[in-house]
Structures are given as C-alpha cells and as structure tokens.
Amino acid sequence: MSASTVAFAPPGPGTPSQAHDPYRLGRGSGSEDESTGHGAGGPSPKSIVVGFGFWIFILADIITFSTLFAAYGVLKDATAGGPTGAELFDRGSAALETTCLLLSSVACGLAMVALRMRSRFWFQFAMLATAVLGASFLSLEAREFAGLVSQGAGPGRSAFLSAFFTLVGCHGVHVTIGLLWLLTMMAQVAAKGFRADIVRRTTCWSLFWHALDIVWVGVFTVVYLMGLSA
C-alpha cells in the first residue's frame, strides 16, 4: 500500500525484488521475475507512472518560475526613481504569509496520511485546514498588493515592480489554482469515495501543493528578505 499509493512514499517492508530491479520496471509480479521489464512483470503500476509524469510537470513549472526569478534578479535595482523593496516590503506580513503556507503544506501532508488510512473524516478535515490556510495566504497577499497599488507602487511604476508583481503574482495564481483543485478533490472524494483514479489525482494535487511551498521559500528569501536587508 505504501509505495504504490503515494508517489514518493518510502518503500514498505517486504520488497526483496528491489535489489534486482532498481527502476521497478518489473514491479507487480514479485521476486521471481528475473528479467525485469520484460515479460511477466510488466510496466510499473499506474500510480507510480502517474506520479512520475506529474513530477516532470512540476519540474517544468519550477523552470518557468526560475525564468521569473532570473528576470527579478536582473531588474531588482531598476526602480526608475521609484520606491525600493526595502521601503515597500513589510517583514511581519511576509512572515505571516510564510507561516500560513508552511502550515498548509503540513496539513496537506496529513491529508495524504488520512488518504492512505482511507479515513474520510480526517481526510476532509485536513483538506479543509489546508484550504483555510491557503485562502489566508491569498487574502494576505491580495491585501499587500492592494496596499502597494494604492500608494502608487503598482506594476507600471518601475521595471522592479513589474518583475515583482509578475513573480509573486504568478505564484499567487498557482496557489489560487491549487485551491480550486483542492476543493475539487474534496468534492470528488465526498461523492465517489477513495476510488483508485481519485486517489491518484489527489496525490498529484499534493505534489503540486508542496511544490508551491518550495517556490515560496525562494520568493520570501530572494524578494522579501534580500530586499529588506539590501
């Protein structure tokens, strides 16, 4: 159950065939299959293949973010006489946003534990906690953006602010999409239960949500903390 349900879950006990089958190409038939990847073993189970494919998507998405980080790094001093990051950013607000997103990532992980337990109550409870924390993050970010625009520091003010709104806004859009996806999975589990395809979708969503927190580590470090200490 452990390795086949959650994409990167550590392998459970009792998988002696691994030593002969490092890529798990012949996974499914057990240790008697010597010619891994050929014949009886067959391809990896669908949950492994789907998890790997979605992991490739996430890496591509992170590469997209890296181009926005590169643009921000080049343009961060191009303030065109306008306000700098040190004047605009608020350490407390950034800390609160970071806390919300980190806790929602942990709540997402606990939801995945409940998914493996096949416990509907704890799954929906943890998913709801994840959604509330994610929505809190988004409202804090929206408040911050509105404050910047209202003091004349909108995306049109300077190249620095264009890069800032593109990078942080793109992350915010991802969180919004992740939130909609989260609610979809809550509804699907409520309506259809822990069907195999729904478990796979939810697992992909959890990878997406964790990846957003990883991108946010880069954002609060490079944008907020470096901007404030510059």
Partner: peptide, 18 residues
C-alpha cells in the same frame, strides 16, 4: 527539508527516476 520530509524524495532504488 521540504523534498525529504514532505515530498518523501529519497535515494532509495525505487526513487531513482524521480
């Protein structure tokens, strides 16, 4: 820390592709 404890990315044989 996120990769290891949240995404469970390890160097175990079944994780080589990832």
């Amino acid at each position: 820390v996120h990769l290891v404890f949240f995404l469970h990315l390890t160097t175990a044989p079944d994780n080589v592709n990832n």
